[in-house]
Simulated assay, not measured.
Amino acid sequence: MNTINKELALPVSDKLLLALTPFISNQPHRAVTINFRDPDYSPQHGGFHPVEVRLEKQAQQWCLCYITDFCYVGQGDYWELAKEVDFDFGCGLFQSINGVFTLETATEIYQLWEQNFLCYWQELEVFEVNVSPG
């Protein structure tokens, strides 16, 4: 089965779920991690944040495990990628610079984040996409 479970704690749009479906179609593995990268993103010049999406097959459906948006933090020679926002569907938690909260409290920020992400990915086509099994 190549469908993604829609019963989630956040209002994940059908548009996003349909856009992710080709990455699980005919997938022989029970899990995939999809990485979206702007090749020009750097701490010095900015750009579009890297995003990671994890899906796992449970019974006959795929489940969205997490969506994480990363950004550079630090300065000088000490830049590193860190989680900026993390929507963890498996644990039911939302993490941001402000702390860790229940996922349901992130509804508004999630909707804004998703709208922007879909625009960057599908309309502006800024991301290179990599799929890793397992």
Rank of each mutant, 00 (worst) to 15 (best):
I4D: 10
N5K: 13
K6R: 15
A9V: 00
L10Y: 08
P11V: 03
P11S: 08
V12W: 06
V12I: 10
S13T: 11
D14Y: 01
K15T: 13
K15D: 14
K15Q: 14
L17F: 07
L18C: 01
L18P: 00
A19Q: 09
L20N: 03
L20H: 04
L20V: 03
T21H: 03
P22S: 07
P22D: 08
P22A: 05
I24K: 01
S25L: 10
S25R: 04
N26Y: 10
N26P: 05
Q27N: 09
Q27M: 10
P28I: 09
H29N: 11
H29I: 01
R30Q: 15
A31T: 11
A31Y: 10
V32M: 00
I34L: 02
I34K: 01
F36L: 05
R37G: 06
R37F: 10
D38C: 05
D38H: 12
Y41S: 01
P43C: 01
Q44E: 15
H45A: 13
G47V: 06
G47P: 03
F48I: 15
H49N: 08
H49G: 00
P50A: 13
V53A: 04
R54S: 08
R54M: 12
L55V: 02
E56K: 11
E56M: 07
K57F: 09
K57P: 00
Q58K: 14
A59V: 11
A59G: 04
Q61H: 15
W62Q: 03
L64H: 04
L64D: 13
C65R: 11
C65W: 10
I67D: 07
F70G: 00
C71Y: 12
Y72K: 09
Y72A: 06
Y72C: 04
Y72T: 10
V73Y: 05
V73M: 03
G74C: 05
G76I: 13
G76Y: 14
G76V: 14
D77V: 04
D77N: 12
Y78C: 06
Y78E: 12
W79C: 02
W79D: 11
E80R: 15
E80P: 01
E80D: 13
E80W: 08
L81N: 04
L81V: 07
E84S: 14
E84I: 08
E84L: 13
V85S: 01
V85G: 00
D86M: 09
D86P: 00
G90L: 08
C91Q: 12
G92I: 12
L93F: 09
L93Y: 03
F94L: 13
S96R: 07
I97W: 06
I97T: 09
N98Y: 14
N98C: 11
G99K: 07
G99A: 04
F101Q: 08
T102K: 02
L103G: 07
T107A: 15
T107G: 05
T107N: 14
E108R: 01
I109W: 12
I109G: 03
Y110N: 05
Y110A: 02
Y110G: 02
Q111Y: 04
Q111F: 02
Q111S: 15
L112V: 14
L112E: 14
W113S: 05
W113Q: 09
Q115A: 14
N116Q: 12
C119Y: 10
C119T: 06
C119A: 10
Y120G: 00
Y120H: 12
Y120E: 12
W121M: 05
W121K: 06
Q122L: 15
E123L: 09
L124K: 13
L124R: 10
L124A: 08
E125H: 12
E125F: 04
E125D: 08
V126P: 00
V126K: 01
E128V: 06
V129K: 01
V129L: 03
